[in-house]
Nucleic acid binder design. Structure first.
Lengths: 248, 248
DNA sequence: CGGGTATTTGACGACTGTCAACGCCAGTGG
DNA sequence: CCACTGGCGTTGACAGTCGTCAAATACCCG
């Protein structure tokens, strides 16, 4: 648990290079697109294993994730790292309400990612102008909060197998909900390393490996390269105690 | 871990009786008090060990806690319970953004408590009318989110002793920050049972006891009835890895 | 004083972490 | 084309934390 802050893949420092590309807003409601378009910055392409922002840094930008997955995490003074959330395309990252000074977590690109940045100030202005944008952001926060609480329940009270099953079931559900995979898909892209799964579940990479191996031997999962096949979604959800909620 | 849903103190179902009493809003900014006064309901007095609301219920009311402590928790299908947050006087509970149907956690009165209720709809109306109230609520959510993330770090990566030390240090800090105890106080009211401490830290009551005993024998804490004396705040914060953040 | 709850303690075992190696695979450079 | 290298996955042995079960003691309120 000590090799973390500059761990296996010699986690290079953050870097992000502007790129031009068209895409839709997946988070901001349609009615604000015009206003939002004028405020958003260029898009950024972020290489795998680089951080978009880091704990303790200035919180002057928020982002919408367009492509790729990101791992949001927090680490303590001993270098132990705890995953907070896996951000999928369409997710909103790094938002901080007015008056906040620094951000409390870091964001790491799991694979190559594309994000679109907004200045926080711009968002705050928009919120005062469009009251239902404020309501929308409030909803997003509440949804993340609920998910965060589910993870707390897992970290505090579930076994390793349950936590991992929950994580996979949740990701599978979220990908389907956003139509990033077909509704009847039986497999999904899975760019997370076992170490990252361990970060999310509060487990050691070694123990994560053992448990995933067990799930495979039980015929629940099947993994090939960076894909994961869910052989029995029912059992997976039952093991993990995962109950899909409306939004995802 | 199975005796929980109707545990030791035969946790009676929720009940709340209206009461009349004057008090200030501690959460809503002054400028909205007039509007808020017209929207708030009466205050409610809640006996110790009763729930204010429960997971899965309708989310039609939000509350400001005036007196007493509350334990917000979530439980899974096996009856295991995980504490999410200790609400102290001045805290805001049960808020759900527009469109939410049911609440995802339960709120239990640790000791006798007094809350003031607001209809969610009323809050939503106010938010559209007063954009900075929306910003304020957003800030509150972000603060709870940050605290929630700190707890995730603890649940996932810290030892039992560290988690308990963190919890106590955090409560001590929050009480001081809100001037619920003097800035130079060396002790605080501590109505939590060891079981509740275990709920918050993801530990068994039994193991919680052992660890608290250890902290006492190390001369860090001292407990009498429902008070806790912090003999060495420095060491406590260092053990728990607690770093006070601006708001609390 | 009595009943019920909370705290405390001991024995025991399971789950998970730690340490240390090894194999596999992809990308790189010769 | 092939050897090399670094990251990731896999495995085994072992230790320690923490959960479980069970029971005794202390405490609080009526």
């Amino acid at each position: 648990m000590s090799r973390f802050l500059t761990p296996r893949s010699q986690r290079t420092q953050c870097a992000s290079c502007p790129v031009r590309q068209n895409a839709l807003f997946q988070v901001v409601p349609l009615s604000y697109i015009e206003d939002a378009q004028s405020r958003r910055t260029d898009q950024y392409r972020l290489a795998a294993r680089r951080t978009l922002y880091e704990e303790g840094g200035q919180a002057d930008m928020a982002f919408t994730l367009f492509e790729g997955w990101m791992l949001l995490y927090r680490s303590d003074s001993d270098g132990r790292r705890q995953g907070l959330r896996i951000a999928l395309p369409g997710d909103f990252l790094g938002y901080m309400p007015p008056g906040s000074t620094h951000i409390h977590h870091s964001a790491l690109a799991v694979n190559n990612a594309v994000v679109c940045g907004f200045r926080q100030e711009g968002l705050h202005e928009m919120m005062t102008r469009h009251p239902d944008l404020a309501a929308h952001i409030t909803r997003i926060q509440a949804r993340y909060m609920a998910s965060c609480q589910s993870h707390m329940l897992g970290l505090g009270r579930k076994s390793a197998e349950q936590r991992i099953a929950y994580l996979v079931a949740e990701l599978f559900h979220r990908l389907k909900y956003r139509r990033l995979i077909a509704a009847d898909a039986t497999s999904m892209p899975f760019p997370l390393t076992q170490e990252m799964v361990g970060d999310m579940t509060g487990l050691t990479p070694v123990h994560t490996n053992r448990v995933m191996r067990k799930l495979r031997s039980e015929g629940v999962l099947q993994s090939e390269r960076s894909r994961l096949e869910v052989l029995d979604p029912e059992v997976l959800a039952r093991i993990g105690g995962f109950v899909p909620e409306e939004p995802a």
